[in-house]
Nucleic acid binder design. Sequence first.
DNA 1: CGGAAGATCCTCT
DNA 2: GAGGATCTTCCGG
Length: 196
Amino acid sequence: MIDIDSETATAPLAGESLTRFFERDAIAVARDLLGCLFLADGIGGRIAETEAYFPDDEASHAFRGPTRRNGAMFGQPGNVYIYRIYGMHWCLNFVCTPGSAVLIRAIEPEIGTAAMTERRGTDSLTQLCSGPGKLCQALDIGIALNDRLLDREPFSLTPATPPELVTGKRIGITKNAEAPWRFGILGSRYLSKPFR
DNA sequence: CGGAAGATCCTCT
DNA sequence: GAGGATCTTCCGG
């Protein structure tokens, strides 16, 4: 007898369900992404920390309208927007409504930790994906994957019941720095920085 | 066409 | 907690 738990036996978002999930306010999406299982080529874990960005938000790459770099932000909901930061790291965003996106800041390593350890050059589980640049290195995410939908290879995103969360100011920005648009799983050991 | 800033990370003190 | 690495992007002149 197969026991299917209807509460947790969710399938990856695809097609219409992907669009519905992301075609919403970026704050709602950023909160609902917490706990979701995100994989790239079958490697990843649960999203532990996110930040929301908006078109009229001075801290956002979308603030001055579409450019060569940020084109993916104005594409389909459920798109990924990947960019290089400080000349050395990659950052991963999920696109919501046009010009809005959610920065993925931390993941709880769960599947494929050996590969992540190899790519990151550290054995410390808490150091594998506890930052936007770190998780891209751990999941081998770079510009080649920019502007793709989350229901296509190599990605998969599976919804989850939202865990208890904490809120705070976004990290590393100078403009619109007071907006409380950073979200994390309450008590997670895998955050990029503690919430205060 | 130059230059400054940048949604970061690591190492050292 | 400070400083350096490293380089693309975009804005101003």
